[in-house]
Simulated scan of single mutants.
Amino acid sequence: MNGHIHRFTSLFRWVFGPLLSAWVGGRYGLVPGLAALAVFLAGPGLVMLPSFLALRFFPPAPGLPAAPWSDLMAAWWREVVAVTRVFNWDQPWAENRFPDFLPERTHAPRGILLVHGYSCNRGLWNAWMPRLQRDGIPYMAVTQEPAFGSIDAYAPCIDEAMRRLHALTGSPPLIVAHSMGGLSARAWWRSVGHAPERIHRILTLGTPHRGTLLARLGSTVNARQMRDDSPWLLQLADEEPDVLGGHFDCLYGHCDQVVFPSETALLPGARVLHLPARGHLQLVFEPQAYDRAISLIHAAPIDAGVKPRPSAPRVESDPARYSQTTP
Rank of each mutant, 00 (worst) to 15 (best):
C157D: 13
D71V: 09
Y154M: 10
F40C: 12
D229Q: 09
G26F: 10
H280Q: 01
D71N: 07
L244I: 13
A127N: 12
G211I: 06
A265P: 03
M226N: 00
D303Q: 03
D242R: 13
L281Y: 02
E286L: 12
V24T: 03
P241K: 05
S262M: 10
L234D: 13
H116W: 02
T212Q: 01
L19K: 00
R105S: 13
L174K: 02
G43K: 00
L34M: 08
R201Q: 08
R227M: 14
V47A: 15
L20H: 08
R210I: 11
D318C: 11
M180S: 10
S70C: 11
I202S: 05
I137N: 01
P146H: 04
R164S: 12
M48I: 08
G305P: 06
G149I: 07
D249V: 15
N2V: 14
L46Q: 06
A108H: 06
L273P: 01
L114D: 01
A320I: 08
G136E: 00
H247R: 14
D256T: 00
G211M: 05
I137E: 00
P99N: 02
A67L: 01
V176L: 11
N126H: 02
G269K: 00
G193L: 10
V259G: 03
A289E: 04
F260A: 10
W93Q: 04
P172E: 05
P103D: 02
D242M: 14
A300H: 09
V243R: 15
H116S: 09
R224G: 07
H116L: 04
T9I: 14
G182Y: 02
Y118K: 11
A75Q: 02
L37K: 05
W93A: 03
Y252W: 13
S70M: 12
N121D: 08
S10R: 00
R210H: 15
A167Y: 05
G279I: 09
V24C: 10
W232R: 05
E263G: 14
D303S: 10
L49H: 07
L124F: 07
D242V: 15
L168V: 06
S150N: 02
H4M: 14
A185K: 02
P173Y: 01
F260H: 07
A108K: 07
V86D: 09
G136N: 00
L267A: 09
L281R: 04
I151S: 03
P261T: 01
A147G: 09
G25C: 04
T84M: 12
A35Y: 09
L55V: 06
Y28I: 11
A141G: 02
V80D: 04
D159K: 07
L41Y: 01
P130R: 04
L30M: 13
V259W: 07
M180F: 01
G33T: 08
S171G: 03
F52C: 08
S191G: 05
Y139G: 03
R122I: 08
I137L: 09
W93F: 14
H280N: 07
F87A: 12
Y322W: 15
G43I: 08
F16G: 13
P308D: 02
D229P: 10
